[in-house]
Design a protein around this nucleic acid. Sequence first.
DNA 1: GCGACAG
DNA 2: ATCTTGTCGC
Length: 216
Amino acid sequence: MSGLPQHYVGFFELVQDALSGLVRLEHLHVSPPVKVCAVDASYSDGLGRAGCVVVSLPDWQVHEERSAELEVLFPYVPGFLYLREGPLVVECVRRLRGEFSVLVVNGHGVAHPRRAGLASVVGLLLSVPTVGVAGSLLVGEPRWRGSVGDVVLGEEVVGRCYRTPGGREYFVSPGHLTDLETVDELIDVTGTRLHELVKLAHVTASRRPSSRSAGA
DNA sequence: GCGACAG
DNA sequence: ATCTTGTCGC
């Protein structure tokens, strides 16, 4: 019922533990104007498709879009999203030709049971700065201070949270080569619309690839 | 044993 | 995530 062979779960946990030991949370200064890349995945039948989009801030101009399709081999299991979406995301971002400062991943970074969510794993494998943006918490609890706040895990602040005018809540955590301050700076630039970057990536991931990919 | 649980 | 009609609101 778990969706993953029981005896493999422990192994995948070890892999994730090893990866989390390689995660480096260091400051990446983000100030406008800056190009960021957002990535997300979509599914149809047994096919998965990731889409990524490079957007400049604060003008929100789209500079490049790319996508990648792969057969889906893993089910979704909380805590193991990297097995399902990691390959898709990595392949998609690798197809980008242009540059970007930070990769925004739909999922958690270090706000994870083993401190290595999809955003962290992808950042490690691609050696690029990443942050994770999620619509709900996997672990930890929010400490609201108005429309923004901290995501606390034990005694440690592992991320930030913010509430949109519409009441939606989002949780942001560093993935790799970024830190809480980077997250704050990103939220400063995008306001309460950081998740809209992921939304753009989702549109790209949902759109079937045109004969030849688009770029700048 | 029971509930929680990114996408 | 994804499958879908109706419905609420600017």
